[in-house]
Nucleic acid binder design. Structure first.
Lengths: 214, 214
DNA sequence: TGGCTGAGTCTACACTGTAGACGTGAGTTG
DNA sequence: CAACTCACGTCTACAGTGTAGACTCAGCCA
């Protein structure tokens, strides 16, 4: 069932009637299995996250593994745009796959030297960033426009600004020509990871020299 | 006009018919002034960003000013949930206020020592993070549930997990008790800013000792 | 046999954004 | 003054959404 849902979703937008047609079934039949459309979507999101779930087993340092998880998480979201995203952005999903992924991520963060509280806040920050990025990309993809088309569109939009008024933004146009979504995304992801590594490093240093500071 | 729109929006959800009723006018009349609902929303977002536009004039270091801009941006988005957010998340807004804000932000980032390309990518990362956060908070607020209610709800949800299977997540429950949305948000914002400061610092150091490394 | 249950169906409702035709009053021009 | 223009507002209608409520029908167990 969930498999058919994921398929139905992969192509375009998603409505109960459309799904019903896909399954050769009356739309209302779905309500026997899911209370809401929301409940259905939530189940779909968790199913979508089942795809990678286990990042690289135990090769690579924690930072690299976190990077891979972030990249995989974004990819999973974008593989089912307009479904995964709407839900993942909207509220915490409590399905088994999502929880396992979260647990693994928080564990890696504590490996960096972060405390319980920090690790959880860091996890939240990473998720917010990733969903923010995915939310920005989603309409581009689901509108059918290719990435390069969109880049060109943005380039000309920014290039046509009054250059005197917006000196930086006018030069921004160039950036759209040679930065892809992936590169953009990983730039921000690395920013966050860099800061987390630094914070963990400082925590460890403070632990080794346990002089009270205040 | 835009003022009436912002008012209509501040209370709950937003539809053409509702706005028409608010303005004692036929819904279709609005289409004389705005091509689309999208066009209307875009204008509203830009109007919403007119509120603070100028962060602290020129007091404080660039980092602190960036922090203030980030906080103000989030506040502006959350002041009009479900309108500002949907649009700001969805595509770049090219209204005058938005552009001015972006320009100022990129300028501050170059002050940190970032190059053109870096500053723009950094700006993008900040916006993605902020919209990600706002997107997560919006449904909580617009569902009428208070922040503390939501915290309690999340706390009990995470507390009822099998503790053996998710050791970190079970302890996560406690976090929801004493971390507010604001604190959460600023934690991630500071992460990003820390990393950007560090990157700028390194750039400057490299400029002062211009020995080729590769 | 009779009744219960769980899945699938049908119809209907309230809601959305918006296309297209129509009315209407003020401003400009002959 | 008459006529024309044109922005503004109205009305109706359409295709789409999620979903409540009643109905049908197969299978199972007493």
């Amino acid at each position: 069932m969930a498999a058919a849902l994921a398929l139905a979703n992969a192509s375009g937008d998603f409505s109960m009637r459309a799904l019903g047609q896909r399954l050769r079934v009356d739309p209302m039949a779905i309500y026997r299995h899911f209370r809401d459309k929301d409940a259905l979507l939530e189940a779909m999101v968790d199913a979508a996250l089942a795809d990678f779930e286990a990042p690289p087993a135990d090769a690579g340092d924690p930072v690299e593994r976190l990077r891979q998880m972030g990249i995989g998480f974004r990819r999973a979201l974008m593989a089912h745009p307009g479904v995964a995203l709407r839900v993942a952005t909207t509220r915490p999903v409590l399905g088994p796959h999502t929880l396992a992924l979260t647990e693994a991520c928080v564990a890696l963060l504590t490996e960096l030297g972060l405390g319980q509280g920090e690790a959880i806040q860091a996890y939240s920050a990473l998720v917010r960033y990733i969903t923010g990025v995915a939310g920005a990309e989603q309409p581009v993809h689901s509108a059918g426009t290719s990435e390069t088309d969109w880049q060109e569109e943005m380039r000309s939009a920014y290039a046509s600004l009054p250059a005197g008024q917006y000196p930086h933004l006018s030069r921004m146009a160039d950036e759209f020509l040679h930065r892809g979504f992936d590169e953009q995304f990983e730039f921000g992801l690395d920013l966050l990871l860099d800061a987390l590594v630094e914070r963990g490093r400082r925590n460890r240093a403070a632990d080794l020299t346990p002089g009270d500071l205040g």
